[in-house]
Design a protein around this nucleic acid. Structure first.
Lengths: 206, 206
DNA sequence: GTACGATTCAAACGCTTGTTTGACCCGGCC
DNA sequence: GGCCGGGTCAAACAAGCGTTTGAATCGTAC
């Protein structure tokens, strides 16, 4: 499943991402993961300590990069004289899209992320909020300046809606079946355009 | 956990809903479910046949009513001379809100529903699309008449975004922590108002 | 009362789970 | 050479899983 020139750790992470996306954290067993990664069962506990740690590492690997890219894109969008709302929004949305297009398991990761939102596990939630929260706050600050008529509460609600819509559509749960004639790439590109248009309008609503 | 005057079947369904929401379908065991329901372990297989059937039944119980209420609300919104967009939208959103406010496990059910979207299980997806699809199509038809400038693809994308935002916020994953001073009821009521305002603006975007 | 179907129960079934163990392999260093 | 330590391996561990079984219990109709 994974090219042999990847390290054992990387092969496990890749296989785990795919299988967690497909069957959930509890639903995918370490035996499935290690078999898919062409690795001995004990390798997971040797390299990661436990299944829970493996789950965290699957998140960390992707989220670290996603956060960096979002912050970079945000700073770029804010560097001009008159920052535009749809470009700040794109700074939030496009890095996630790019990730979901990533050669390897990026698409799978978006489904893993959606699962994480559904998990009520306290440890996982704290981990995500610790690694995720400050990015959301920076975006919120930028939006506050661009949309001064919006109250803090109203703004946070709308960002929450956008997060839900983004995750939902990137993980392609919904009824929007990709047509056979449209490449996966083009399909997601279109999703981003649609979402930015939709969310921009939603944000500027009175 | 459940009042003794409920039947064994009902107690199992209630406990299963809560525990599936909390730990996922694979993560919640029948032993946990039957213990929470104060019922013998074998009762699940006696009354439902299997764990998979129990999962389906958890969905059927809530979705049947949700669909009926949505269709009723839609028809009511369309019965006037000039149907309004935000009222059609409310017909989609409010029944889900009401369900999530339901005395018993309605709130838990919204989280179960979010999990179902994340499941890639073919059987479950088919079951949901069979029981859910026609309602979405009816709403799409109503929106098409109200928003003739929107192409079919654009409309379906936007409905998908709304579904994602609705599920995400109703299951309260996001950073929007309910304040201690605001009742759960008021909190969700406000969510519905915000979402309707946000989604209406998003739908009428060019 | 007794017979009957529906329901509940404790116990066990075979199987899979995450984790641990101790032997083994192999490259670099003394 | 010998040695060491990081890595891999097959095997086993106890615990938990969904499901099945057969006996015990219930309410009801005869």
């Amino acid at each position: 499943m994974n090219a042999p020139h990847f390290s054992t750790k990387e092969r496990i992470l890749g296989a785990a991402e795919t299988l967690f996306a497909r069957h959930g954290f509890a639903g995918a067993s370490l035996r499935q993961v290690t078999a898919a990664a062409n690795v001995n069962l004990a390798a997971v506990n040797y390299h990661f300590g436990s299944k829970d740690n493996l789950i965290e590492e699957v998140f960390r690997r992707r989220l670290d990069e996603l956060n960096v890219r979002r912050i970079e894109a945000l700073n770029a969008a804010l560097a001009v004289d008159a920052p535009k709302l749809d470009e700040v929004l794109a700074a939030f949305i496009r890095p996630a899209l790019d990730l979901s297009l990533d050669e390897a398991g990026g698409h799978a990761f978006m489904r893993v992320l959606a699962r994480a939102y559904a998990e009520h596990d306290e440890r996982l939630r704290r981990f995500l909020s610790d690694n995720y929260g400050h990015v959301l706050r920076e975006f919120a600050a930028a939006f506050t300046r661009l949309l001064p008529h919006l109250g803090k509460e109203e703004l946070y609600w709308r960002l929450d809606f956008i997060t839900g819509a983004l995750t939902h559509s990137m993980a392609d749960f919904g009824p929007m079946k990709r047509r056979g004639t449209v490449s996966e790439e083009a399909h997601r590109e279109r999703a981003a355009e649609h979402l930015i248009r939709f969310a921009t309008a939603g944000l500027v609503a009175p």
